[in-house]
């Protein structure tokens, strides 16, 4: 059992964005940037893959952050400080390839900012100049700004509706950086919705700018057993859980990935409706 030591609701607006600090000393010690955990909140629960957003190896804690978009994440969001999660397995996936590249641009979109955080931190620790671009739909949904400022040399922010800093998309800011300001960039790391990662790759491709995309696909076991997470990368089928989650962004078939992401939408909706009713009753 894994205790929730701290719960933070980043955005109360639905779907809520919630963060837990979990007591998981061994995972905290083994974790490297880019890795994720699988969480099963209760006995009848689903295996939910969530990227580790931060950790404190000394205190033995890890941070996970999620948006309550489906029944399982809504259920997870109903857990309180002091509650215990049934199972947490990890760290899983290959760590991010970290070395001194020079200038690294770390792009996070929406809740994708959380998983970018440890990567930015590790890149900066490795001696890189880290410029982060954070994108959110609106100001209220922007998370981890302070942490990202600490983890980066420079932070740029865009909001879709212009409610904070600059109106626009992360791709606009990236283009501005490399095409207008002509900042020499050695590597781009991007995490966010597949469509955003696809567009970021479309921006970097003509510049032959190396781009890592960290993929967030459907998973069941998360250890290479089931293949639910498979994606086509460079024409070859790869498993996100053991071959990834990070891949050469220019080789990922995002369209296939997006179609695969939608597989359980009707079931998720059905479960979410039931869950909403139950949680309302229990509230």
């Amino acid at each position: 059992m894994y205790e929730i030591l701290k719960k933070t609701v980043w955005s109360a607006q639905e779907p809520r964005i919630t963060e837990f600090v979990l007591d998981a000393p061994e995972i905290a010690r083994a974790h490297k940037a880019g890795q994720f955990v699988i969480i099963i909140p209760r006995e009848s629960g689903e295996r939910i893959p969530l990227t580790i957003a931060d950790k404190d190896a000394e205190k033995g804690t890890i941070n996970i952050l999620f948006q309550e978009v489906g029944a399982s994440t809504m259920l997870l969001g109903s857990f309180k400080e002091g509650d215990k999660l049934m199972h947490v397995a990890g760290p899983l996936g290959k760590p991010t390839h970290v070395e001194k590249f020079g200038t690294v641009v770390c792009i996070g979109g929406g809740v994708g900012i959380a998983p970018v955080h440890p990567i930015a931190k590790a890149m900066k620790d490795a001696g890189n100049k880290v410029i982060s671009i954070l994108g959110a739909r609106t100001k209220d949904l922007l998370i981890y700004e302070d942490l990202m400022r600490k983890a980066s040399t420079e932070v740029r922010i865009t909001t879709d509706d212009g409610s904070y800093v600059k109106k626009g998309f992360v791709t606009d800011e990236l283009k501005q950086m490399i095409e207008v300001e002509k900042i020499p960039v050695d590597l781009v790391v991007v995490i966010g919705p597949p469509i955003m990662m696809k567009f970021v790759c479309k921006v970097t491709e003509p510049h032959r700018l190396k781009t890592f995309a960290s993929l967030n696909t459907i998973m069941v076991d998360g250890t290479g057993m089931c293949g639910a997470c498979r994606v086509t990368v460079g024409g070859k089928t790869k498993f996100v859980c053991v071959d990834g989650p990070e891949f050469d962004g220019h080789e990922v078939d995002y369209d296939e990935m997006m179609a695969r992401q939608r597989q359980y939408l009707p079931e998720e909706k059905q479960a979410a409706d039931i869950c909403r009713k139950k949680l309302c009753h229990s509230a």
Partner: peptide, 8 residues
């Protein structure tokens, strides 16, 4: 949906 994991 008694258990949380879906199957088609």
């Amino acid at each position: 949906p008694e258990y949380d994991t879906p199957i088609k």
